[in-house]
């Protein structure tokens, strides 16, 4: 299961680390875009397997930010 960015922006904060249990709807990454904080949340529950971005990275709409298992 992958968590995707829903808009273009910079990764401002990553709020989880590998191994964390996340629940559906929980914010996992916060982007900064259009001068706003844009929380990206997990659509399903799972355990964080891999974080595919670093703070400060540019991500586009549809890019994978976190992989869940």
């Amino acid at each position: 299961m992958e968590v995707l960015s829903n808009m273009a922006g910079n990764v401002w904060k990553i709020t989880v680390k590998p191994g964390d249990q996340v629940t559906e709807g929980q914010d996992v990454v916060i982007l900064e875009s259009m001068k706003m904080e844009i929380p990206i949340s997990a659509e399903v529950s799972g355990i964080v397997d891999e974080i595919t971005v670093n703070e400060g990275d540019f991500v586009n709409d549809g890019d994978v930010v976190i992989k869940l298992k």
Partner: peptide, 8 residues
Amino acid sequence: QSKVKGGV
């Protein structure tokens, strides 16, 4: 709705 995509 600024909770989704900043309301942009």
